[in-house]
Computed example of a mutant assay.
Amino acid sequence: MVIHALLAAALAMTSAPAQTTVDCDRVKCLALTFDDGPGPGTPALLKTLKKEGVKATFFLVGKKVEQSPSVAKQTLKQGHAIGNHTYSHPSLPTRGDDEILNELKATQELIEQATGYRPQMFRPPYGHTDDRVLGLADQTELSQILWTGTTLDWSLRDPKKIKAAVLKLAQRNGVLLMHDTVPETVKAMPGIIKELKKRGYHLVTVPALLRGKGPKPGTSYF
């Protein structure tokens, strides 16, 4: 009985990401999200987030999960939320239904194999989406997560400019788009987090920002 109980507990730990206990109805929350990983800089970013005691959301590319399954697993283990960012990062509205479904389903399987968790969220590459894409996401039991502000860190490529972009875009219940594949973003994060905390923000996952009301399949947020 004890062995069965321990096994059940272990399975429960990998079935869903740990959620913050922050009440975003009472405090000023902000969700930092990172696309396109896992990448070479992701472990350093995870180390920073752990040191600062904050949670973030990572939208993972399937082919990158194939290359770095242990990093994907570590991301979930540290209590961050993870989502699907397709297998090969195409502009989905330009692809046929079967190809879109394959992009989403393959990534679902790879993330589940690596982490033990099957994502409930996806983010369309480049933010390119339409009603057809959202309907296919619904078939895959995924919600669609967009954002309230993008830092364009991939083009800025400067820690000071990236920090300034984050601080300009920050707002209560906001969702900011960054990339853990941009080295300058990883470098800027300690200063970004310290300043956001100073301004009263609680940094939480997207599910925490939804306050238990999502994510729901086939629904688009932010």
Score class of each variant (00 low, 15 high):
Gly37Ala: 05
Lys63Arg: 15
Pro217Ala: 15
Leu176Gly: 03
Glu141Val: 01
Ala114Asp: 12
Val71Ile: 15
Ser70Thr: 14
Leu176Ser: 05
His4Gln: 06
Arg199Ala: 09
Thr48Ile: 15
Lys161Gly: 15
Pro90Glu: 10
Leu30Ser: 06
Gly37Lys: 06
Glu66His: 02
Lys73Ser: 14
Gly149Leu: 06
Ala8Pro: 00
Thr21Gly: 14
Ala31Tyr: 07
Val22Tyr: 03
Ala164Phe: 01
Ala137Met: 12
Ala9Thr: 09
Lys77Ile: 06
His202Cys: 05
Ala10Asp: 10
Gly53His: 14
Ile162Gln: 00
Pro43Cys: 10
Lys28Gly: 03
Asp131Ser: 14
Ile3Tyr: 13
Asn173Trp: 05
Pro183Trp: 11
Thr185Phe: 04
His202Gly: 08
Leu209Lys: 05
Glu112Arg: 14
Ser91Pro: 01
Leu46Gly: 03
Cys24Gly: 12
Leu46Gln: 02
Pro93Met: 03
Leu169Val: 09
Lys163Val: 00
Leu32Tyr: 03
Glu103Pro: 08
Ile162Tyr: 02
Leu46His: 00
Thr21Met: 09
Met121Phe: 01
Asp130Ile: 12
Glu184Ile: 02
Gly83Arg: 01
Phe122Asp: 08
Gly62Glu: 04
Gly62Ile: 06
Gly96Val: 07
His202Val: 01
Lys194Met: 09
Ala31Ile: 04
Glu141Thr: 00
Leu177Asn: 04
Pro69Met: 10
Ala188Arg: 03
Lys213Arg: 14
Gln139Thr: 13
Tyr221Met: 05
Ala208Pro: 01
Glu195Asn: 08
Asp158Trp: 04
Arg157Gly: 02
Gly79Asp: 10
Phe59Leu: 09
Ala12Leu: 14
Val54His: 12
Val27Leu: 09
Leu167Pro: 05
Gly191Phe: 12
Ile82Met: 15
Gly149Ala: 11
Tyr117Ile: 02
Phe222Glu: 08
Arg132Gly: 01
Gly41Met: 04
Thr151Asp: 02
Gly149Glu: 13
Ser68Glu: 07
Leu6Tyr: 03
Ala208Cys: 03
Lys198Leu: 07
Gly53Asp: 11
Val22Cys: 07
Leu11Ser: 04
Pro69Gln: 06
Lys105Cys: 00
Glu99Lys: 12
Gly41Trp: 09
Thr42Gly: 03
Val175Arg: 04
Leu203Lys: 12
Thr14Gln: 07
Asp97Cys: 00
Met1Asp: 09
Pro183Cys: 08
Gly149Lys: 07
Pro40Met: 02
Leu11Gln: 15
Gln120Val: 11
Ser15His: 13
Gln108Val: 00
Ala8Tyr: 08
Asp35Tyr: 08
Ala188Phe: 02
Gly191Lys: 06
Val204Gln: 10
Gly200Gln: 10
Pro125Gln: 02
Val22Glu: 09
Val54Leu: 13
Gly39His: 13
Lys216Met: 09
His179Gln: 04
Ala164Tyr: 04
Gly127Gln: 06
Ala10Cys: 07
Thr33Asn: 05
Phe58Tyr: 15
Gly127Trp: 11
Asp153Gln: 04
Arg95Glu: 14
Glu112Lys: 15
